[in-house]
Design a protein around this nucleic acid. Structure first.
Lengths: 187, 187
DNA sequence: AAAAGTCGTTGACCAAAGTCAATAAATGAT
DNA sequence: ATCATTTATTGACTTTGGTCAACGACTTTT
């Protein structure tokens, strides 16, 4: 999992022994398109690194899918809240393509935290980074109109808009497909 | 700062030597009502524990105050984003009463992280906890109407509603004071 | 190739929150 | 206690996004 190690390097460089221990906790899993790797009601006891493929993280509100996140190659995918709290997930995680992921589970991660101060630190840096990501999404909901949110997304990740159907983008932006269609028409 | 140590215990117990080192990094500061402990444009290089008093954390959007958080006795107060990224703060932090806080700065906290694995862990646990808090606020903006948000707040923190003027509550809920007034009138 | 489904667009209408203005109530200052 | 200021409420109207329905462009299935 060289790509994961490279990703970690953006936070902190693990030495060979730390990395070796980390790597030995990873389980490779092949996932087929539309397979759910986490269901509502289950405890999410893993964090997975996406080697290939993509996922959507969504919540079922009275039969309507509310998409909270998309995850792509090179991202982590997990219900971090359920993972941290031990509570059942209110979200589903579903593959949008065939995928290959590397999972690590809670117990193993906790042993790694115990064993290596550097991995403990990596855990902190990643938690801090996840904080920054939700915080910025929260800002977009508090301070921006749907139109601004859409334009910012376009700016930041125009690839997403090409790869994911528009009704999912609308859901992710917190609006109805009709509204997104009208925003795009406004030019 | 016994109250802070007790608060830490809800995450992790520090032994006497760890705590002694931690405590020696704290600086007590007296704050007067309406004093700003952080201004827009400044880098937030501290995290402070509130021993007495309360603060509001707000953003100035075209002359309009957008309140993002309230912090009370027993909470931390900081612009955690600016603290973590080193970027200038886009928020102000202002005292709502005379206050006493205990500050720790970034450099000192980093040395504590280096020196004590347990404090490193405490840092992770607190980062994880802050993640959970923003994530749940994000949920309230994505999935709830302003009325539901108000009722949930009432449920969760009715004291807040008594201590803070209503127009600030409205701002915190992401709505106009008139709208909050109407929501309350709906009964 | 035809039929069935899915997705995006458009129109007419509705509901909820925002805006602006007037007024009432509460708070603070002298 | 009175006056001035700030805060909260209410009304009329506007704006924005949601709802429901129709339709057209593509896909997928058979």
């Amino acid at each position: 999992m060289e790509t994961l190690r490279i990703y970690f390097n953006t936070f902190l460089k693990l030495n060979d022994s730390e990395w070796k221990d980390f790597e030995s906790c990873l389980t490779k899993v092949n996932i087929t398109n539309k397979e759910q790797i986490l269901r509502q009601g289950e405890h999410c006891n893993f964090i997975a690194f996406i080697h290939e493929g993509s996922f959507r993280f969504y919540y079922d509100k009275e039969g309507e899918e509310k998409i909270t996140a998309f995850n792509f190659k090179g991202d982590f995918v997990s219900n971090y809240r359920s993972f941290l709290t031990g509570k059942p997930s209110d979200h589903f995680i579903e593959a949008m393509q065939d995928a290959i992921i590397y999972k690590i589970n809670l117990q193993e991660l906790n042993s790694l935290y115990d064993k290596h101060k550097n991995i403990e630190r990596l855990g902190r840096l990643i938690a801090e980074n996840l904080y920054l990501m939700v915080a910025s999404r929260l800002d977009s909901f508090m301070f921006q109109t749907p139109e601004e949110r859409y334009k910012a997304l376009l700016e930041r990740n125009s690839r997403l808009l090409k790869e994911v159907p528009q009704y999912m983008i609308a859901s992710y932006l917190g609006i109805k497909p009709e509204t997104l269609s009208r925003i795009r028409a406004r030019k």
